[in-house]
């Protein structure tokens, strides 16, 4: 298909695929390139040990995350976010806030465009802040590691989702009761659920809320 005959969405998918494959190969080759530069092979037993201890869990979570986050991020947002990361703590809240304020729906092309703009901006700003930080790491280190500031950085997720929750719960009050009650009960009474396992609970919350929404919709409550 010629470019001029493609819809915007089709071209986003095509470009996203090529960029994704290109950057993906580059990232996966990097350890090899560094190996060659220093003439150092990995320690095979430590590599195997490290992979066995890390990869199965994060691959499982990663696959579930694709199905959870792709519909929310939109196409362009997905292709960027799954390269630059920090999805739940930065990119997705940023996109949600942007679509909400612009009054566009994620299911429409307007939503796709606004979501892409906000996520791309957020990625660019993050990259520059980290570059600046790396350049200034010597003078910045004592400030960034100051014990007095540590609680602020530790509490970024509660602070972020407190604000976001107000917006979305106030607009979807009926639908939010059941998932919030379920998640409160689970997190309060199941000790294994904490900051490191919240990622696994996101898909649980999403599927549960969609099922509740379907029931309420069929009953005409929503």
């Amino acid at each position: 298909m010629k470019k001029s005959n493609m819809t915007y969405m089709e071209s986003v998918h095509r470009d996203g695929k090529y960029w994704g494959i290109g950057v993906g190969i580059l990232l996966l080759l990097l350890p090899l390139i560094v190996s060659l530069f220093f003439g150092a092979m990995p320690q095979w037993d430590a590599l195997l040990g490290g992979l066995i201890a890390t990869a199965p869990m994060y691959w499982a979570v990663g696959i579930v995350e694709i199905f959870t986050y792709v519909p929310m991020l939109g196409a362009g947002g997905t292709y960027l976010s799954f390269i630059t990361g920090n999805i739940s703590n930065l990119k997705l809240p940023c996109a949600l806030d942007a679509m909400e304020r612009a009054g566009v729906k994620a299911t429409e092309e307007e939503g796709e465009v606004i979501s892409t703009i906000s996520i791309a901006t957020s990625s660019i700003v993050t990259t520059f802040i980290i570059i600046l930080g790396v350049i200034l790491i010597v003078p910045l280190q004592p400030i960034l590691e100051a014990p007095v500031l540590k609680p602020a950085f530790d509490m970024i997720l509660p602070a972020l989702f407190g604000g976001l929750a107000v917006v979305f719960i106030s607009k979807n009050a009926k639908l939010s009761v059941a998932p919030i009650l379920l998640m409160l009960a689970l997190f309060i009474f199941v000790p294994a659920l904490n900051q490191s396992t919240v990622g696994i609970m996101v898909p649980v919350g999403v599927v549960f809320t969609v099922v509740v929404a379907r029931i309420l919709y069929k009953k005409g409550v929503l």
Partner: peptide, 18 residues
């Protein structure tokens, strides 16, 4: 769509109370 967003937000609200 809203249900997906709320599902994610509720998981993080639950975590706040862990």
């Amino acid at each position: 769509n809203n249900a997906m967003f709320l599902g994610m937000i509720s998981a993080f609200l639950g975590y706040v109370f862990c």
